[in-house]
Design a protein around this nucleic acid. Structure first.
Lengths: 213, 213
DNA sequence: CCAGGGGTCCACCGGACGGTGGACCCACCG
DNA sequence: CGGTGGGTCCACCGTCCGGTGGACCCCTGG
């Protein structure tokens, strides 16, 4: 990082949120907002030019979402040089968002209801390479690690996804070129992993955990 | 309203969003942000004291949500006087949110991805009593009016809600003190109204339309 | 090598669900 | 007053789903 000031890039598709973040950070003398982007692709392009120390990134964005952009940024800058620290800043705290962001290489995960001073402190901490997590997120993260063996297999997720669309077992079978009995087996295994005992409960629970589109 | 300046109250539980809105509006000479609130109850209390012309209101908030606060505000100030115009400003654009907000008396409905200048114009228009709707919202609104005959009855919504929780027909029947056969009838009528033919599809479709919690 | 585990696949029952038909009550209206 | 319509309720079938048991394949490690 350049001297003692932290170079920050703000990425969010909502103008209101960008304005709020810039306003909150700009008054801090040691924080310097060097740019803004409205989608993930623009963020990656801008980061390559501006070389920020910290990227504040929303997850739900058009063109390229926050997870993809985070992965691209933490993979390393194309011209060499240090990769920026990515702090995810989102409204939601579902398991899937957290896991996907952390897997993509995010240094921090904050919710948008974070108060101003905590946000500022988090940006400074992230610049030093420290991991920053809101308590809610930390709890969910350890919870998901604890039950990590309970993830759905690709096939199970695929079947459950079609069931969520309202397809019957026979229809799912025809769609995937497998027998109806097989569809039922995948669903049963999904039920066990989700802790429910019927298809409707499975869909709502999977949706709650963010395992479904 | 007092002279030519518009008095605005900003209501959102996210500090970032409040900061962004204040920053966007404060630079306009004819707009005066007279206060901020972090939940619906605080908004109602503050509005009674500050007498704003326009209230920019989020929907998802603790204590008292945006719909309740909107209803309280548009019902009229306790000391008499004109009720403020409420402009709902939210992330989501589901039918239920729109309908509930409009029914509660909202003058406008904007999404948080609204660009800055459109937001400013909307606040001025709302102060004059004009209705402001984003195109997406307007489309959904006429769509929901068009299919207004297709709304679920209270009992049907109640049954479908329990089914969404994963309850079986028999369990729903016991919970509501009705026979299992009756539960099925309510579900079948729901299926017809939603254009689906099984419980899982009904739950996802109802959720998509915002007819479910 | 083969033993073990995870993932995917399938056949067979009992109970639950989707569908039809009809009853009752109440509000509205000619 | 009787008729009409909507909302809620229920009984009876045929079908589909939830549950058990077991097969196969691939990969990994002893």
């Amino acid at each position: 990082m350049s001297g003692t000031t932290v170079r920050v890039l703000v990425v969010d598709d909502h103008p209101v949120v960008r304005s709020g973040l810039v306003g909150m950070l700009a008054v801090e003398p040691d924080l310097d907002v060097v740019g803004e982007a409205a989608d993930g692709q623009a963020a990656v392009d801008l980061a390559a030019r501006l070389r920020p120390d910290v990227v504040l990134m929303d997850l739900r964005m058009p063109v390229l979402d926050g997870v993809g952009a985070t992965a691209a940024l933490t993979a390393g800058a194309p011209g060499g040089g240090p990769a920026p620290r990515v702090v995810v800043l989102t409204t939601y705290d579902t398991d899937a968002d957290i896991l996907r962001a952390v897997e993509a290489g995010a240094t921090g995960y904050l919710l948008k209801d974070t108060p101003r001073d905590e946000l500022v402190r988090s940006v400074r901490a992230a610049a030093r390479g420290q991991t920053v997590l809101t308590p809610t997120v930390a709890t969910r993260l350890v919870g998901s690690v604890r039950t990590s063996a309970e993830r759905l297999t690709p096939r199970e997720a695929q079947v459950l996804g079609l069931v969520a669309e309202g397809l019957s077992n026979a229809e799912v079978g025809r769609a995937l070129f497998i027998g109806e009995a097989t569809v039922k087996t995948h669903l049963l295994r999904s039920f066990a992993k989700l802790g429910v005992d019927d298809r409707t409960g499975a869909v709502t629970e999977a949706r709650r955990r963010g395992w479904l589109a």
